[in-house]
Nucleic acid binder design. Structure first.
Lengths: 163, 163
DNA sequence: AGCCGAATGTGATTTTGTAACATGACGCAG
DNA sequence: CTGCGTCATGTTACAAAATCACATTCGGCT
């Protein structure tokens, strides 16, 4: 796996946006009475700092190196908590997880995943959700959650490939 | 895993629609010079008959019982072939595979997956694809393939749950 | 016949994900 | 403050999903 450091595809100050998002997440957790414990906070931080999708075992390795538990459930439980409460997302195509860049907002987003550099971006989901809801209704199907993941080329890799 | 036998959510003659689709697939394969070998044909048939999503190992068990190889690659290779050539789809949320009901037509469809009975339906994808393409363009992202899977309740389970 | 590439078979291994159970921390009713 | 319930964590073991590497076989072709 390569190591791009982009999630939104534009250049920006990662340290800042990561810290910022973590702060928002903490506020949100406090507000909702959710316990953002050390493991959980650290996992969220890892995802935010990496600024890309990470596999559960990659997260686990980092945790273990820092003195947390070193068995799979440690990572999976923290990740599950983050996903369930909207602080992170699961990317099924990659078997991986990424921090949510808009905690508390726009859930069940659309993901754009670069096949060349593994960068992941969250895109506005409303139009897609509406189209999908319509398709569901036509079939009498009650949609509860949706997974939308698009594979392709991010702007940078697109330029690189054209060269 | 329960055993619903619905894929489109409406009652219909499974044997007929399965046979029909298999015939179309065979014609299509011949036309494109693809080799629909015994294992591959049998896997497609299994998926069509089951009329729901099946895991790779479930497929493998059936194959083994019928005298084909009994090691994972046997199933995975056949499934990969079917998916790559549009005869089947992979459902990432379920780590499972389902026969394509419209081979040769409308690829990269939208899936409606019932969380209660595991039934899977392919829904019209064009509106969703359009919405998604727009979101991609706005980010400068070139979409190549999309995965759209909606979890929810199919009409039957919806009715059952209301009771 | 002899060759070639594609498809299959097989064994082993890696990667990903869970089940089950023990321990420790914290709040709170008595 | 003590004992109880609950939640989070840790750990062992295991199950499920997927891939690697290599041998073999099958068709078509010359």
């Amino acid at each position: 796996m390569t190591q791009p450091e982009t999630l939104a595809f534009h250049a920006h100050d990662h340290a800042h946006c990561a810290g910022d998002t973590l702060a928002r997440a903490e506020a949100l957790a406090a507000e909702q009475g959710l316990r953002l414990t050390p493991v959980r906070r650290r996992v969220l931080q890892l995802l935010l700092e990496a600024h890309r999708a990470m596999g559960a075992y990659e997260v686990l390795d980092r945790l273990a190196a820092e003195g947390f538990g070193n068995q799979p459930p440690v990572a999976y439980r923290a990740l599950e908590f983050l996903v369930e409460n909207g602080f992170a997302h699961r990317l099924h195509r990659l078997n991986a997880f990424a921090a949510c860049m808009h905690p508390g907002e726009d859930h069940s987003p659309v993901f754009l995943i670069c096949r060349s550099c593994d960068a992941v971006a969250e895109a506005p989901a409303d139009p897609v959700r509406r189209a999908l809801a319509e398709a569901g209704e036509a079939a009498g199907f009650a949609i509860e959650r949706m997974t939308v993941e698009a594979m392709g080329l991010c702007p940078a890799c697109r330029a690189a490939e054209a060269a």
